[in-house]
Design a protein around this nucleic acid. Sequence first.
DNA 1: GATGAATGAGACTTCATTCAT
DNA 2: AATGAATGAAGTCTCATTCAT
Lengths: 205, 205, 205, 205
Amino acid sequence: MSPPTARRRLTREESRAQTRERLIDTAQHLFVSNGYGGASIRDIADKAGYSQGAFYSNFSSKEDILLELLRRHMEAEAVQLSTVMGNDAQQPEQMLAELEAWASTLNQDADWCMLSIELQLHANRSPTFAAEYQKVWDRHRSEIGGVIGLLFEKLGRSPPAAPDELAAAFMALSHGLALQRTTDRMDPSGRLIMVFLRGLIASAK
Amino acid sequence: MSPPTARRRLTREESRAQTRERLIDTAQHLFVSNGYGGASIRDIADKAGYSQGAFYSNFSSKEDILLELLRRHMEAEAVQLSTVMGNDAQQPEQMLAELEAWASTLNQDADWCMLSIELQLHANRSPTFAAEYQKVWDRHRSEIGGVIGLLFEKLGRSPPAAPDELAAAFMALSHGLALQRTTDRMDPSGRLIMVFLRGLIASAK
Amino acid sequence: MSPPTARRRLTREESRAQTRERLIDTAQHLFVSNGYGGASIRDIADKAGYSQGAFYSNFSSKEDILLELLRRHMEAEAVQLSTVMGNDAQQPEQMLAELEAWASTLNQDADWCMLSIELQLHANRSPTFAAEYQKVWDRHRSEIGGVIGLLFEKLGRSPPAAPDELAAAFMALSHGLALQRTTDRMDPSGRLIMVFLRGLIASAK
Amino acid sequence: MSPPTARRRLTREESRAQTRERLIDTAQHLFVSNGYGGASIRDIADKAGYSQGAFYSNFSSKEDILLELLRRHMEAEAVQLSTVMGNDAQQPEQMLAELEAWASTLNQDADWCMLSIELQLHANRSPTFAAEYQKVWDRHRSEIGGVIGLLFEKLGRSPPAAPDELAAAFMALSHGLALQRTTDRMDPSGRLIMVFLRGLIASAK
DNA sequence: GATGAATGAGACTTCATTCAT
DNA sequence: AATGAATGAAGTCTCATTCAT
């Protein structure tokens, strides 16, 4: 009945998905700028253009939407990493170059890192959330740890600490730097991360 | 004035100071465990053993007590650093040893780092607070930056990034690691910081 | 139209009737256990296995389904009473025995009485509902009153109060006792009602 | 400073007590007319002339104020009963006369009985509340049971059911009749209760 | 200096109901 | 006939803050 070229009216499922998506986006922005506790559901719904009830027909609670953000965060980070580390037959120089490319992405979106921090903070406070968080976190850390281990292996050197620990340290560095970020200052996160990584390599035997 | 043997009744000023002190201590604990937003003034007053009114007799607002915590935080960190870096005629080996001692103190009290994070988070959200925070932060960073610069100087090498940036990075690392801390896992913060520092030195020319 | 051997697909009307029936049953259970105000339409629909929309396809409002329950309640009580009081040429002893049988049915289903109470409570609060309720109630009371009047007549005694009042009192007694019912205590409603009835007869001249 | 004859400014305690009292009174009226579930804390506070916060600085929850009403209800009923049954050396005729006086008080305040019903209903739904309720209820029932037992003893007859059961039945009767009460009809509760009581006596041997 | 009752705004959440699908 | 996403009002409760005592 409606011509295929015209902007089609959304099906019910699409419409629901759109609502969900808008709420999730808005929630992310507000969690980042006001913190999880500081962002109210009223604000999220209002800014997304819906009623509070719409929020609750899409999410069971405030924590529920944070869980959804956690899932997406993890997924996106995994995708990002696998994109960077795509070709498996690599020279160490290539790996370093790609790591540098990856590190520089961290600069782009401070929001992204701030969300990590909010997730971590909330995990420290809500046992329910902590359980989910731990799974995601452990997996991500061990993926990065794998990359680091591989790098040192290809360089024929032994890493100065367990790869997983180094992975955690790099994430810590990145989060800590995000925390320091102000709007008026240029952000050196990516560069500093590489400085530290080169240092580790230099000190490895 | 009061007989030395009897338990002296506190003067009015001492009593007031005691109240202040107890409120500050309690506030710190609660800000750390619940976050600034998650800690209520009623909780602070209750747990400190006072009424809400007592809080407002000593502090003008919730942010006011956070400012006081900020001041003390800065002061304590300065003292800590100057204790470690006391003797100014030092060999690089001594400096490293003392830095290691300092880094290990960071393990001791996760609360300390979490407070840093809460301060930083609140600075990102409240312009009033941000102004005060920036002063303290800049000063502290440049102090640590000084130590790092001096270290490289004594080693006769040039640091792989501006000393202030490196200082910020080490603080970021320490905060990021504190954020990861769970009760059940041993905390490798101090050790990792030294691993990274040695890396920097190794890569410096 | 449909082959008699196969499980016949429900006609549209039958299907609708089934939906209605299930919703009514579920509503009754929930009104009884949570009260009219405490039972939500979402709960009713969910527990009945339908959507909220299905509810509104069958009933115009929450009060509407309560009205339907009222109608059925009245009808069922009338049937119950007429079953018990079926043969009109009776001896007083027979009547008492049959009343006893009837009274004992009140023990069986506390839910039944609790529904009466919910209906009465809602009638006290909603004028719309009260109008309908009053009709049903008056009719039921006068039916029971008729039985009581007849009993005393056959006994050749005059009742110690207007039969309708006595009827109301017996219903009150039964409802009040239902209200006291707890799961862990055996319910003496039927027996107590007979004790009171025998008392009335004994005191009548 | 203020003359003793002038309307004195309330002390803090008096003021608090006044607030509590007004909230309790208002709550009772609203619970009776709208039911426990139908009365909102907003309404209670508003009609009492306070903010919602004032409610919560006097009661910890909605159930808490219902518990307070329960306590007062019990106390008042105990007082009422002991007033009626004051002189312990009584003739049966006196006792009956006094019981009649007591029964007639039940007519006065339908609200009183409706509150009983709300208490009972809520006890059937909230386990927390049920525990408290049971204590009060058991005690009250056995007090009335005592009076009934004594009456039959003085009459030299044995009651046609356990005195406690009879007590429960009379309370049930009174509650059930309260439930039937409408504004436009005169209330025969007291009279009917006496009719039933006389019946019991007449049928006792 | 300290109290804590009271405020008013705002938190999260549930509800009866509507309406496009 | 039935769906269920969305609404807007209302629910219980907590908060930072004020002020008479």
